[in-house]
């Protein structure tokens, strides 16, 4: 974990770190990763990962349309929109 790694994961996370906290966060992350490196010691051979403590299977829905048009409710909560669309700065493809 170095500054370059931190800047890569910061970009993946769409976060910027300013000069003053960059060093501190890099240091923190280093320590946290060192801390979680304790996991290396566990013998996990043939152990199935556990993604959710409920070892059950999912309930599903039948294929029915239940949603109503709530365009106004949604658009009025958005930071920027016109009467039809959410708006963001022009994306160049």
């Amino acid at each position: 974990m170095d500054k370059k790694t931190v800047s890569t994961i910061a970009y993946l996370s769409r976060l910027s770190l300013n000069e003053e906290n960059e060093d501190k966060i890099t240091e923190d992350l280093k320590n946290i990763i060192k801390f979680v490196d304790q996991l290396d010691g566990a013998d996990t051979n043939n152990i199935e990962p556990l993604a959710n403590p409920l070892e059950k299977t999912a309930k599903t829905r039948t294929d029915n349309v239940t949603a109503k048009n709530r365009k106004e409710v949604f658009l009025e909560r958005s930071p920027k929109s016109n009467e039809d669309y959410f708006l963001v700065p022009r994306v160049v493809e």
């Binding site: 979680v36 996991l39 290396d40 566990a42 996990t44 152990i47 199935e48 990962p49 556990l50 993604a51 403590p53």
Partner: peptide, 10 residues
Amino acid sequence: KAQQVRRLIK
């Protein structure tokens, strides 16, 4: 690894 240890803990 953490998910595996999680199972061990459970």
